[in-house]
Design a protein around this nucleic acid. Structure first.
Length: 598
RNA sequence: GCGUUAGUAGUUCAACUGGAUAGAAUAUCAGAUUUCGGCUCUGAGGGUUGAGGGUUCGAAUCCUUCCUAACGCACCA
């Protein structure tokens, strides 16, 4: 009974043979999960075997169904629709599953594997505060690493911080020119917002200077490079690369402000990393490898000194790896970072990059280059590419300032949770501290679920009105189902109804609700597996939502604490308990907490 | 121009990777329960899966030609 699918296939193989004298390989027998709108749990598709069966699909299905009822240990009933044989399974099978799940707390976890994975996510620029797009990225990466943990891997959560380059120099120039020594402390704003403001300041002031130059007769291209501000920024980058003391000091100070700001955002959404990588630490290693590759004839050098890779044979393009002035590009540091990570963690089997789909091409190139450099793990690098988050009134454009700020959004969600919850008046006896925690749990549950339920690779629409909806396919709906079960369990305990030790075999008949819930619970490990293989938390969302709906339907149709206090009562309570545990575990994979009451 | 990805109820998303009558949620309408928590449950309407052609027992899914959209094609990151 441990694996019904295999068992059913074996039994069907025998049925084919005995009824139709048809030898069929077990691999050719396909059994699917029966769709919701049909009766049964598993379905045999008969069409592929028609030629060998030499009879109409309906007749064959009928014969096999009859045969299975009398010969199978798990099939209790069947129905045939066209060429599909739907099988109902026996109570004893579901009782067996129930006992198995009840016995071990970790029944749903995969066996520990010796290998590890690394998941990179978030990876912000140090000149911009986090926004809605980052949130999708962060929740995805965080969830995927948790899913891999449940699947048996050790997962390292890391981020790469783009702490170097012309962008941060622009912020530094603006601060030097326009701040009069102001600091986040003196202005009482978050460090990332503070620095971000100077980046914007640079852009607006620089635009004015460009305009002025064009009026003085510069061409547009020349004007872009010739403004006093831009010249100062370029100069600062050179000073930085030459490790000029004063420049490095300012750079450290401003990055420090930004990191403090990020840290407080991460804290507010319950996110942490095992290790940070900094571009400034890895770009030199990248350069070294590119030069090594050049020496080995893997890359080529143009007359101006720039170094390129030719990927035309692989269906890609020529791509620059090092500029003619010897400075590195984005690709260079990514090469260095990848190598460094496999040095730091020799046991990682694969590396997952959570980065938006506008960089699909970049990662194709990166993996090919690593492969050329003869790193065999290059094949195990995976770009977890996700679609943009669109807003109802058009796209987010950070340059136009049309962004949804992460901190603002979280606060807005918390406010909404507060209004909704206090309207219901069920938690009036909570003290302030618990209330604040409750609002936070609900708000983050709504937000994370909303962003995770869509298949990562697809773009998604963020509708603020719908994201704060707490009905239907939402995080709070699932949290509510959990809280409601806990309420039942509290009552059971108060009434001293024991539900840990009872003999399930004394129950005469399981209802369809019981069977469906047990069957659904049992599929949890499979869902985790596909979720890990497809790098997609959305299947976990679908799973836990369906579980909640199944439970609510059960709850509505059957009274759980029914006054009988017999084996069936205990079983129904225990089934509720098991459902609650599975809801917790599923939501944990999504990074979502649950409240005991709400 | 070239390349990549996508296009599914009014709207937001599914569809176990080629299986049935394409499912949920939401909105709308009709009902149930007001007893363990009404953020619950049951039902109805709503679709030529962007369009055409092909492959086969069978296509939203694979191939092909169009149409539309996003992204990419920098000595930017």
């Amino acid at each position: 009974m441990e694996n019904v699918l295999d068992q059913l296939k074996e039994e069907i193989k025998i049925a084919f043979n005995e009824l139709f004298n048809y030898e069929c390989d077990i691999e050719n027998i396909s059994i699917d999960v029966t769709p919701k709108n049909f009766e049964g749990f598993y379905t045999l598709v008969i069409f592929p075997h028609l030629k060998s069966l030499k009879s109409k699909p309906e007749d064959a299905g009928d014969k096999i169904g009859k045969y299975l009822i009398s010969n199978s240990t798990v099939v209790s009933d069947y129905n045939v629709v066209k060429g599909f044989l739907n099988l109902d399974l026996s109570d004893s099978y579901f009782k067996f599953l129930f006992n198995k799940m009840k016995k071990s707390k970790d029944w749903w976890k995969s066996q520990k594997k010796d290998n590890e994975v690394m998941v990179e996510f978030s990876s912000p620029n140090t000149n911009k505060p986090l926004h809605l797009g980052h949130l999708r990225n962060i929740f995805l990466g965080d969830s995927v690493s948790k899913i891999f943990e449940a699947y048996g891997y050790k997962a390292h959560k890391v981020q790469i911080i783009n702490d170097r380059g012309i962008h941060i120099c622009k912020s530094m120039v603006a601060w030097k020119n326009f701040s009069n020594g102001k600091t986040p402390e003196s202005e009482k704003i978050k460090g990332d917002k503070f620095v971000g403001n100077y980046y914007v300041k640079f852009e607006t002031e620089n635009q004015k200077q460009i305009k002025k130059l064009i009026e003085e007769g510069y061409s547009e291209d020349d004007a872009l490079k010739s403004t006093p501000l831009m010249k100062e920024a370029i100069n600062l980058l050179q000073l930085w690369e030459n490790k000029d003391g004063e420049t490095i000091e300012l750079w450290n100070k401003m990055n420090g402000w930004v990191y403090n700001g990020f840290e407080s955002t991460y804290k507010s959404i319950n996110i942490n990393f095992d290790k940070n990588y900094y571009e400034s630490d890895t770009y030199l290693l990248g350069k070294k490898n590119v030069e090594k590759g050049l020496k080995n004839g893997l890359f080529y050098q143009k007359n101006d000194g720039s170094i390129w890779v030719d990927l035309i044979d692989e269906g890609l393009d020529n791509k620059i790896l090092i500029r003619s002035d010897g400075t590195s590009v984005y690709m260079t540091q990514d090469i260095g970072t990848a190598i460094k990570r496999f040095e730091d963690f020799p046991k990682i089997e694969k590396q997952i990059y959570t980065v938006g789909n506008e960089q699909d091409y970049h990662f194709k190139v990166l993996f090919k280059v690593l492969k050329k450099l003869n790193y065999k793990w290059a094949d195990e690098c995976y770009h977890l590419s996700y679609g943009m988050v669109d807003l109802p009134d058009g796209k987010m454009k950070s340059r136009e300032g049309k962004v949804v700020d992460a901190d603002d959004l979280v606060n807005h969600m918390i406010e909404t949770a507060k209004t909704r919850t206090s309207d219901l008046g069920k938690v009036d006896d909570f003290d302030i501290e618990n209330l604040d925690e409750l609002y936070r749990i609900i708000a983050l549950g709504a937000l994370k679920y909303f962003l995770l339920k869509v298949d990562p690779k697809k773009k998604m629409l963020f509708n603020p009105d719908e994201s704060i909806d707490f009905n239907g396919n939402t995080g709070p709906f699932i949290q509510y189902t959990y809280a409601r079960i806990k309420s039942i369990l509290r009552r059971a305990n108060k009434l001293e109804i024991s539900y840990n030790n009872f003999d399930i075999n004394k129950i005469k008949e399981l209802s369809i609700h019981h069977k469906k819930i047990i069957n659904h619970l049992n599929s949890f490990p499979d869902i985790i597996k596909t979720s890990a293989k497809t790098h997609s938390p959305s299947s976990i969302c679908q799973y836990v939502f369906d579980l909640s709906k199944l439970f609510n339907s059960f709850y509505q149709h059957e009274k759980i604490i029914d006054g009988n206090n017999n084996e069936t009562t205990s079983f129904k309570i225990a089934l509720s308990d098991l459902t609650a545990l599975t809801i917790i575990q599923s939501l944990e994979l999504l990074g979502i907490d649950v409240p005991e009451r709400m």
